[in-house]
Computed example of a mutant assay.
Amino acid sequence: MRRRRLSLVSTLTERRKAATQLDIAHAAAELFVERGPDGTTTEEIARRAGVALRTFYRYFRSKQDAVGPLLAGGADRWRALLAATEPGTSAPEALERAIAQALSVPDEQAADGLRRTRGLLRAAEHDPALRAVWYRVNQESEDKLVPVVAEIAGTDADPLEVRLAAAAATDAIRIALEAWATTDADVEGPDSPAALAVRCLRELMGGMRLVGLGKGAA
């Protein structure tokens, strides 16, 4: 009983930490879009998030680092969608479906999330530290994606092809979002992030042999 109680307390503590980190990330993103990273201080981010400055530095090393949880959240969501692929689906098809679904806008909250990302990517054009956070998030996402793709492709899949597919899928999303951020295109339609990412994926995977037998294939 005591062990279970300690586990529950630990879980609640981790949830509170994650919620605080996300509050800070939202505050940082809002200020970066409004004023740019150069026009924003860590004190202002902490104040808008409703936390003490020491709390800010407990979780983040710099103001640019603070938006990491927001950028990583999208990657976590699309990997989860990919992991839920139905058995029998080929790897390329699974990647395309997951990307299209992850970048879709079923509601205004999803649309706002994409617009916020656009604002951050525009701000990153003039801020090397913010760009570094963006690239780091993408690299971490690619690394986490490899075992997910491997499971879908099956045990007979070439490990190199699996790595290439993970890199292609990650870059497809990154390039699509970066290209979209330079325009005023809508969150839906032929020039939306979802449409651009699917196009990028098809181009990048065009020469790959990774077909797979589907999730759980032997």
Rank of each mutant, 00 (worst) to 15 (best):
residue 38 D to E: 14
residue 13 T to E: 15
residue 43 E to A: 13
residue 11 T to W: 12
residue 28 A to L: 08
residue 12 L to F: 11
residue 41 T to R: 07
residue 38 D to T: 11
residue 18 A to Y: 09
residue 38 D to N: 11
residue 44 E to N: 03
residue 20 T to L: 12
residue 45 I to W: 03
residue 20 T to E: 12
residue 37 P to Y: 08
residue 42 T to R: 00
residue 38 D to R: 14
residue 34 E to D: 11
residue 34 E to V: 02
residue 24 I to P: 02
residue 44 E to I: 04
residue 37 P to W: 00
residue 20 T to I: 10
residue 44 E to Y: 00
residue 25 A to G: 08
residue 25 A to P: 08
residue 37 P to H: 05
residue 29 A to N: 06
residue 24 I to V: 12
residue 24 I to T: 06
residue 36 G to L: 02
residue 16 R to A: 14
residue 12 L to K: 13
residue 32 F to Q: 05
residue 43 E to D: 13
residue 14 E to R: 14
residue 41 T to C: 06
residue 25 A to S: 15
residue 11 T to P: 03
residue 41 T to E: 05
residue 37 P to C: 07
residue 32 F to M: 02
residue 41 T to L: 06
residue 23 D to C: 05
residue 19 A to P: 03
residue 29 A to I: 09
residue 19 A to T: 11
residue 41 T to D: 13
residue 13 T to N: 13
residue 33 V to K: 00
residue 21 Q to I: 04
residue 18 A to G: 11
residue 29 A to M: 06
residue 25 A to V: 05
residue 28 A to N: 06
residue 23 D to Q: 14
residue 25 A to R: 03
residue 27 A to L: 04
residue 15 R to M: 14
residue 31 L to R: 02
residue 17 K to R: 15
residue 41 T to Q: 09
residue 31 L to E: 01
residue 18 A to L: 11
residue 11 T to R: 15
residue 43 E to L: 07
residue 13 T to M: 14
residue 27 A to E: 03
residue 22 L to K: 10
residue 32 F to Y: 11
residue 40 T to S: 06
residue 44 E to A: 12
residue 16 R to D: 15
residue 22 L to C: 03
residue 44 E to M: 04
residue 16 R to Q: 15
residue 19 A to G: 10
residue 11 T to C: 10
residue 40 T to G: 10
residue 38 D to K: 11
residue 39 G to E: 05
residue 20 T to G: 01
residue 11 T to N: 11
residue 40 T to Q: 09
residue 12 L to C: 09
residue 29 A to H: 01
residue 27 A to F: 04
residue 42 T to L: 04
residue 19 A to Y: 07
residue 12 L to H: 10
residue 17 K to A: 13
residue 19 A to F: 05
residue 31 L to D: 01
residue 23 D to N: 12
residue 16 R to N: 08
residue 35 R to N: 14
residue 33 V to R: 06
residue 26 H to Q: 12
residue 43 E to S: 11
residue 30 E to L: 10
residue 28 A to D: 08
residue 38 D to P: 00
residue 22 L to I: 00
residue 22 L to V: 08
residue 29 A to E: 06
residue 14 E to D: 15
residue 30 E to W: 04
residue 40 T to R: 02
residue 29 A to D: 09
residue 36 G to A: 10
residue 38 D to F: 07
residue 24 I to Y: 00
residue 34 E to C: 00
residue 13 T to W: 07
residue 24 I to D: 03
residue 39 G to Y: 08
residue 16 R to H: 14
residue 28 A to F: 05
residue 15 R to I: 08
residue 37 P to F: 01
residue 20 T to K: 06
residue 39 G to M: 03
